[in-house]
C-alpha cells in the first residue's frame, strides 16, 4: 500500500499572542524571530501513517508538501522519523486561504505517486482553513473519513477509528480513500533519533511538477482576503488574593456570588 501523508510548514502556532504581529501594510503575519514548524495535526497524520505501515507488510509512507524550497524542512523531519520517500510540489506564493490550489496540487501528486491512501491533518495551525483534505477528496473522487484518530489493517480493508461530536465510531472500508486526522493520545508524533535526523539530511527530496491540476483548481471559487487584524483584547482580570488557599477560595466564591453567576 502506498500511503501518502500531506505536511505543511507553518508559523509556530504556540507563539504567544504578545509575540504575534502582522507585517506592516500586508495581510500576513510577521515571521521574524518566530520558528517555523510542521503543523500539529499534520504531525498526527504522519504518526497515523507510520503506525499503519508497521502493521502492513510492504507498505510505504511518502511525505508530501506543497511550497517553496525552504518548506523542505518538514520533509526532512518526516524522513527523520523514517518516512520512506519525500516529495515537494513547488508553489511559490503564500497559500493563505487558497486551500483549493494546494488540494489540487496534492491530488496531482497522489495520482503521480499511485497512492492508495492519502492522510492529511484536519486543519493547518496558521490559516485554520480546514479544507485541504476535503477538497482533495473531491478532486480524487475518493471516499472520505474525517476526524480519524487511528487506522489499522482490517480483515478485508482498513479499519478507521473516528471522532464523533459525542463519542467515536470504528468503521471499515476499502482503499483508495482519504483520511483526515485529528489529535488523539495514540497519534502524538514519535521523536526522531539523532542518527536518523542526521541521515535524513542526506536523503533525496523528489520534486513533482503538477501544474495542470492547479490550473483547473484556479477556476473554482476563491476566498479573497479583505482584511486581517489582531483583535484588541483588554485584559481586566481581577486577582483574588488571600493568605492561603482557604482565604482565596472564600474570596472567589464571594465574588462569583456578587457577579450573580453561581
Amino acid at each position: 500500500m502506498q500511503i501518502m501523508v500531506c505536511l505543511k510548514k507553518i508559523l509556530d502556532p504556540e507563539v504567544p499572542p504578545r509575540d504575534f504581529r502582522l507585517k506592516k501594510g500586508e495581510m500576513a503575519p510577521a515571521t521574524e524571530g518566530i520558528p517555523l514548524v510542521m503543523s500539529s495535526f499534520d504531525q498526527n497524520a504522519l504518526e497515523v501513517g507510520l503506525q499503519l505501515r508497521e502493521k502492513l507488510a510492504g507498505a510505504t509512507v511518502t511525505a508530501v508538501t506543497v511550497g517553496p524550497e525552504d518548506s523542505e524542512d518538514v520533509l526532512r523531519k518526516a524522513l527523520a522519523v523514517k518516512a520512506d520517500r519525500a516529495v515537494r510540489v513547488p508553489l511559490e506564493q503564500d497559500s493563505k486561504l487558497a486551500g483549493g490550489i494546494v488540494a489540487g496540487l496534492l491530488a496531482g501528486a497522489a495520482k503521480q505517486l499511485g497512492a492508495d491512501l492519502v492522510i492529511c491533518g484536519r486543519q493547518a495551525g496558521d490559516w485554520d482553513g480546514s479544507q485541504v483534505g476535503l477538497i482533495l477528496t473531491e478532486a480524487l473522487g475518493w471516499p472520505l473519513v474525517n476526524l480519524v484518530m487511528g487506522i489499522e489493517p482490517g480483515s478485508s480493508g482498513l479499519v478507521l477509528r473516528r471522532e464523533l461530536d459525542e463519542g467515536y465510531e470504528v468503521i471499515e472500508g476499502n482503499s483508495p480513500l482519504v483520511a483526515v486526522v485529528t489529535n488523539h493520545e495514540t497519534n502524538v508524533l514519535r521523536i526522531a533519533k539523532v542518527k536518523d535526523t542526521m541521515a535524513a539530511m542526506r536523503k533525496k527530496i523528489e520534486l513533482f511538477d503538477v501544474v495542470d491540476s492547479a490550473a483547473v483548481e484556479l477556476q473554482g471559487g476563491r476566498i479573497e482576503l479583505v482584511s486581517l487584524e489582531i483583535p484588541v483584547k483588554e485584559a481586566n482580570c481581577e486577582m483574588i488574593t488571600g493568605e492561603n488557599g482557604g482565604e482565596k477560595a472564600d474570596n472567589l466564591v464571594k465574588r462569583l456570588l456578587e457577579l450573580k453567576v453561581l
Binding site: V15, F20, L22, L97, D126, D128, I223, L228, E229, I230
Partner: peptide, 20 residues
C-alpha cells in the same frame, strides 16, 4: 457578504469574501 473567521488559532481575525 463579508465573513469574519478566526485564523492563527484566534490570534488574528480575517475578513473574507467568497468569489462567487
Amino acid at each position: 457578504i463579508i465573513f469574519t473567521k478566526p485564523v492563527f488559532g484566534g490570534k488574528a481575525m480575517a475578513q473574507v469574501v467568497l468569489s462567487d
